[in-house]
Design a protein around this nucleic acid. Structure first.
Lengths: 104, 104
DNA sequence: CCAACACATAAGCGTACACTTATGCGATTC
DNA sequence: GAATCGCATAAGTGTACGCTTATGTGTTGG
């Protein structure tokens, strides 16, 4: 769950696609495969990487495993980003939102 | 300068170390090598990757090349992070405490 | 029970990545 | 103007990565 795990996990476009899909709502591994052309083992391996980076967490339901976004990973990214606050461009809306929340 | 370039660039711990060092202030490639055990070509290659990801920008001064943080890359990361705002942990307060702990 | 299912793990393979040594190139210095 | 300096590029190499096929593990329904 290190900073290194996080960035390495996000370096792969397929994993970012999986992550984005999960952002729309939690779902199991099979459902995640729909729309993305990927084999079952590949998906399982990607989820394993995302899980050990704390970007995603699992919840067993019988033989199904429901996956969802893990806020812990996002927090670590936010921490990393905060270190470079001095260089944040002023006129980015997304940053303003981030700033507001973190200043609270 | 795609999202992919950014995350791939940050996936390498050496490049993150270079980036962090630049956050303390712009400097040339030779100065960047001090403290980090790295060959001159390796440094040049890392800087090239960071540059094409818009994480860093260069400024030629004679035979020296001064490197500095490029806010554009940070903006893209912030945009990416903003997409998952719904999952940001509520207790940003705790996040800030964590930040201070990491600063030692 | 046992067959089908959801998912994980193992082993092998091609490719991308980060490094090395060697060389090139433009700018300064003497 | 030749040597040196700061940096970039080329070419080669070991390793990590993401994929595949095959198999294992636990669960559920008929």
């Amino acid at each position: 769950m290190t900073e290194n795990d996080i960035f390495r996990a996000l370096a792969d476009p397929t994993r970012r696609a999986i992550y984005e899909k999960l952002a729309a709502g939690g779902m199991n591994a099979s459902a995640l495969r729909e729309g993305i052309e990927i084999s079952q083992p590949a998906m399982s391996q990607h989820l394993s990487v995302l899980r050990s980076a704390k970007l995603v967490r699992e919840e067993r339901h019988g033989r199904f495993v429901n996956y969802e976004i893990d806020p812990e990973g996002l927090a670590l990214i936010a921490q990393w980003l905060a270190k470079y606050r001095a260089y944040w461009p002023q006129r980015i809306e997304a940053l303003k939102i981030l700033l507001k929340d973190m200043d609270r």
